[in-house]
Amino acid sequence: MPFRECSTRNPRQQILDAAQWLAEQPTAPKISPDDLKDRFVLTSADASEAVLLARRYRICRRAFG
């Protein structure tokens, strides 16, 4: 279900929300930036940034618990 109601929120917050959601998935899903674009109403650049940020979140959680 897309989060269309978030479209009026701060774009930076939408990127962080998408990255956090992606990082919290039990296994690293093979979600493309296009999937995040649709789900969180992001631009292509923002969705790509969210994917990279989610990878960093996962690494930090693994390293620091």
Rank of each mutant, 00 (worst) to 15 (best):
R55N: 14
E5S: 13
T27S: 13
W21T: 01
L53V: 10
D35W: 06
P26C: 05
A63L: 14
T43V: 02
L16Y: 00
L36I: 02
Y57Q: 05
R55E: 15
D34E: 08
Q20F: 14
L36F: 05
K37I: 07
C6K: 09
A19F: 08
F40R: 05
I59Y: 01
A19C: 03
R4W: 06
A28H: 12
V41S: 12
D34I: 07
I15T: 08
R62P: 03
R39G: 01
A28C: 13
P2T: 10
Q20N: 12
L52G: 02
L16M: 12
F64M: 12
P2W: 01
Q20I: 12
F40H: 05
L36R: 04
L52P: 00
T8G: 09
Q14K: 14
K30H: 10
A47W: 02
P26T: 03
D46L: 02
R55L: 11
D35C: 07
P29M: 04
P26G: 08
C6Q: 11
T27N: 09
Q25F: 00
A54E: 03
E49L: 15
A28Q: 14
I59G: 00
K37W: 02
D46K: 07
P2H: 05
L42V: 01
R39D: 00
A54K: 10
Y57V: 00
R58C: 06
D38F: 06
D34N: 09
F64Q: 08
P33K: 02
E24T: 10
W21G: 06
S44M: 06
R56T: 12
S48N: 15
R61G: 09
D17M: 13
A28Y: 03
L16H: 07
R56I: 09
A47S: 02
D35L: 09
E5P: 01
L22W: 07
